[in-house]
């Protein structure tokens, strides 16, 4: 299983990579939304999961989610916002734009794994 981790912090990408490796995901990384779209375009198959920061240079995460939702090729990609944006109104905006789940920074490893389990992404690899 492949995920794309989109965050402008290398440290955050590494933390997320370590966590999702525990439930069987390999990962490619991108530092902003546009770089992520470029990376995905070059893959023969799109990732099953995208972990998306909100505040990034070039193209922010909300814009990425909006674009990904409109792309038929990415129809089956699960979108999880992972961001410090934590107002209720922001969560609602992200869900409305098409994010499937929302994890607020700071998060613990357990909480991230729990969220992915809610989406049917579990260590056994059972996919919805």
């Amino acid at each position: 299983m492949l995920a794309i981790i989109i965050d402008d912090s290398r440290a955050m990408r590494l933390i997320l990579r370590r966590i999702i490796a525990k439930i069987g995901f390999d990962a490619v990384e991108a530092g902003d939304g546009q770089a992520a779209l470029d990376t995905i375009a070059e893959l023969t198959e799109p990732p099953q999961l995208a972990l998306v920061d909100w505040n990034m240079p070039v193209m922010n995460g909300l814009e990425f989610v909006t674009r990904a939702r409109k792309d038929p090729r990415l129809r089956d990609m699960t979108l999880v916002m992972v961001t410090t944006e934590s107002e209720q109104s922001q969560i609602v905006r992200a869900l409305a734009a098409g994010a499937h789940e929302y994890v607020i920074k700071p998060f613990t490893e357990d909480s991230m794994i729990d969220k992915l389990a809610l989406l049917g992404l579990t260590p056994t690899g059972a996919n919805p």
Partner: peptide, 20 residues
Amino acid sequence: SQVEVNRGLAAQQLVQYFER
């Protein structure tokens, strides 16, 4: 806390049943 609501709740439930 933020850490507590991050765990186990769906985002939809967080916005529906909680307020900041």
